[in-house]
């Protein structure tokens, strides 16, 4: 399906829903990997909003990307509970090689078994440097 046709399908699926902008943006990002300027224009048109309003929402939330991310994304929790269990040493290790995109998240809700990370929808707990190397090695 072409990009505009796919976008139309998403917009049609949410037509008439109350407060549909976030669900639309989630769907667009899930399909295309990011929310492009063209997509912002099409969404604005469909919802009778200005592009500035749509872009304001896209840029407000950490989840939405305006450009594609070619590398695999590892969401690493760096909130207090994971800090208390030593996540900062892991974060330094990940930054060093740059093979994966490391996104900091504040809390995956597994605070008693950290340090934790999420790749896609798969969670990884009780991370050690060795387990992290295996995880990253399998992605890059």
């Amino acid at each position: 399906m072409t990009e505009p046709a796919e976008l139309d399908r998403i917009l049609a699926a949410h037509a008439g829903r109350e407060g549909s902008l976030l669900p639309i943006l989630h769907d667009v990002q899930a399909v295309f990997g990011h929310v492009s300027e063209a997509a912002e224009r099409a969404i604005a048109h469909a919802l009778n909003l200005s592009r500035a309003e749509v872009h304001g929402v896209v840029s407000f939330y950490h989840d939405f990307r305006t450009a594609p991310e070619p590398r695999p994304v590892v969401k690493l929790c760096r909130a207090e509970s994971c800090q208390a269990r030593g996540v900062e040493a892991l974060a330094a290790r990940l930054r060093a090689d740059g093979l994966v995109k490391v996104e900091t998240v504040y809390c995956l809700g597994l605070c008693s078994v950290g340090p934790n990370a999420m790749v896609g929808d798969t969670l990884h707990a009780r991370l050690t440097p060795e387990k992290l190397d295996v995880l990253v090695g399998g992605l890059a």
């Binding site: 929790c77 909130a79 207090e80 509970s81 504040y106 809390c107 809700g109 597994l110 605070c111 008693s112």
Partner: peptide, 11 residues
């Protein structure tokens, strides 16, 4: 929207 670190009861 249980964002506090150290909480997981909602989840």
């Amino acid at each position: 929207d249980e964002g506090d670190s150290g909480t997981f009861a909602d989840r």
